[in-house]
Design a protein around this nucleic acid. Structure first.
Length: 566
RNA sequence: CGGGGCGUAGCGCAGUGGCGAGCGCGCCAGGUUUGGGACCUGGAGGUCGCCGGUUCAAACCCGGCCGCCCCGACCA
């Protein structure tokens, strides 16, 4: 491709709206163009990279035994009502109405239709197992798109689904996908780590995310360097910081004027935070719940939601708290009546806690569980944090931010039961098909590639996903001699099967070098009067500081070797 | 949905009531340059986000709305 014919344009100034590196570089390179919040057009450079990613995914899916299908993005709403997911997705779900007034959705994911498709064709255990995948546009009306392609409202996703007759089959399908995912991220230059993930409202079994660690990521993960335990913070267990368990002292009231937060309380009384109990109030599907947790810990709402078996969980409003007869800031589990109390198991560690007195400006010292108060449920509802002990080996965990680039999930029979996808087993018994689902966001993966592979000058694409392998830069092309040699070299590179971007613009060297660096093409070849005096071209890897002079006839071979070594 | 920032040329920005709305970059034409974002000359390019109000006069003041970015909430 000649640069003068390439559709698109690089920017000289950094786009003001972008903060994360991948967002900034995608815009600056002219690879994407915004049309609305979280809605982008992709120019040929981006499309070429996305096609590379797709090709890798298709190869690995195929190797894992999955077959490609294409499912509708436009779907009837009633499918989503049958599984209850219209409700579960809520405002995320894009809805519309057709000319016959039929309610439709733009699909955010495709479990419903794939299940129905499989139901239509699968009758017997002999038809199983089967794995299907597609690369399809998804629509999600996200509350807050961000980071360029990291979180958008319209995006390409590879979604795969496995269908098995039994749990062992599901496990095998799952492991095959996990292997495929490792290969895909490896080949794309994205060192993603696989972490345990929350399985969400569907309540399936195993679920893992593939996370690229980077400070711009939206997720927090906890990792153990000693034993390899790794989990999303939503899911992670931890050994909570141990505290002494003192002999119980008598309960006593203490005046705490204006003290409301744990921080202030601990400071005012000169005690560590772990000697206080925090009270937090939630509204779980409309009922108020009192949650107690040791003062040095935070509530993990995902765990709490699971414990409560709630579908909708949020912090209670001040009005709801007051109406329940609780005093925010001085609330106490002591003497709570008519409100369910859920306590984190951390209240069993330690004692003589300071708790609210249920009247303003007073707290109680030396509260001890069972002697002084009661909890209806005791469970692990704490957020694991960096520094806590690894749940397996006790080594301190460390926390990191990251981008979720892939997710694998054992769905079980949630969809097959609701949508009637059954098969007949050997004994002629009707059974629900056991499902798994596996997703990779393509644009997000492209962003992750760039987050992990860039420097001040621009993108540094791994050759596997680079839009072009070689950038041939001709300098002083208004000199017919140079133009002739550069054109010849361009033909030679194409002849040798190299994807070549030929910068044939009449621009100065600086402009061309900067664009070559910005676009991140792995190998740069320069032809100029200077190199031609030696009968050479300069060949340089994107990351190299210095190029190498190579005789014109050997350039294609040299480029090939260089690409192999990257 | 809460908090913050911002909407003026393709991009980055200036312009706090008064000539015909500016600067840099980019773009077009001509010339000079030529190995890390060159220079000269001449040009093209604008519903100042939208609607309403105040005023002799509004990019600028007032009200409402819309949009974009960032933080948080949210994210089967």
């Amino acid at each position: 491709m000649r640069f003068t014919r390439l559709f698109g344009r690089t920017l000289r100034t950094d786009p003001a709206e972008a903060e994360t590196p991948s967002h900034r570089l995608l815009l600056k390179a002219g690879m994407i163009y915004p049309f609305a919040s979280g809605v982008y057009a992709y120019t040929p450079l981006a499309v070429r990279s996305l096609h590379k990613i797709e090709a890798i995914i298709r190869e690995e899916m195929s190797a894992a035994g999955a077959q490609e299908v294409k499912l509708p993005a436009l779907q009837p709403l009633d499918l989503w009502q049958q599984t209850g997911r219209a409700e579960a997705f809520g405002p995320i779900l894009f809805r519309l109405r057709d000319r016959r007034e039929r309610d439709m959705v733009l699909a955010p994911t495709h479990e419903e239709v794939i299940t129905l498709l499989v139901r239509a064709f699968v009758r017997s255990y002999r038809d199983l197992p089967i794995s299907l995948y597609q690369i399809q546009t998804k629509f999600r009306d996200e509350p807050r798109p961000r980071g360029g392609l990291i979180r958008v409202r319209e995006f390409e996703m590879k979604d795969a689904y496995s269908f098995d007759a039994d749990e062992e089959g599901l496990e095998a399908s799952y492991q095959a996908m996990v292997r495929a995912y490792r290969n895909i991220f490896d080949r794309c230059g994205v060192p993603a780590v696989m972490v345990e993930a929350d399985s969400g409202a569907i309540g399936g079994k195993d679920s893992h995310e593939f996370i690229l660690p980077t400070p711009v990521g939206e997720d927090t993960i906890l990792l153990c360097r000693a034993c390899g335990y790794a989990a999303n913070a939503e899911r992670a267990r931890s050994r909570k910081p141990p505290v002494p368990k003192p002999d119980p002292l008598p309960l006593e009231e203490v005046h705490t004027p204006g003290i409301k937060t744990i921080e202030d309380l601990a400071g005012y009384l000169g005690i560590p935070r772990h000697q206080t109990l925090k009270a937090v109030f939630y509204n779980a599907d409309g009922r108020i719940v009192f949650v107690a947790i040791r003062g040095d810990l935070q509530v993990n709402e995902v765990k709490l939601k699971r414990v409560l078996k709630a579908t909708d969980l949020r912090l209670a409003t001040d009005a709801e708290v007051a109406q329940a007869g609780l005093v925010a800031g001085s609330a106490s589990p002591i003497g709570v009546k008519g409100i369910p109390v859920v306590a984190d198991d951390s209240i069993l560690m330690g004692g003589n806690f300071v708790v609210g007195a249920n009247r303003p400006h007073y707290h109680l010292r030396n509260a001890n569980y069972t002697r002084d108060f009661h909890a209806d449920t005791i469970a692990d509802i704490a957020l694991a944090e960096g520094g806590h002990g690894c749940p397996r080996c006790g080594t301190p965990l460390h926390a990191e931010r990251g981008i979720e680039v892939g997710h694998v999930f054992k769905l079980g029979t949630f969809f097959s039961e609701r949508l009637g996808a059954f098969y007949l087993d050997r004994e002629g018994q009707q059974k629900p098909i056991i499902m798994g689902c596996y997703g990779i966001g393509l644009g997000r993966l492209l962003s992750a590639v760039i987050e992990k592979n860039h420097n001040e000058a621009g993108i540094i694409f791994p050759s596997s996903v680079a839009p072009f392998q070689v950038c041939l830069v001709g300098l002083n092309l208004d000199d017919p001699q140079v133009a002739q040699q550069a054109d010849a070299l361009y033909r030679a590179l194409l002849q040798a099967g190299m994807e070549t971007l030929y910068d044939d613009r009449l621009e100065t060297a600086g402009v061309k070098f900067n664009d070559a660096d910005l676009l991140g093409i792995p190998v740069r070849v320069v032809v100029s009067p200077r190199t031609l005096r030696q009968g050479c071209a300069e060949v340089k890897g994107r990351k190299a500081l210095q190029g190498e002079m190579v005789p014109l006839a050997e350039v294609a071979e040299k480029v090939r070797l260089l690409l192999q070594s990257l």
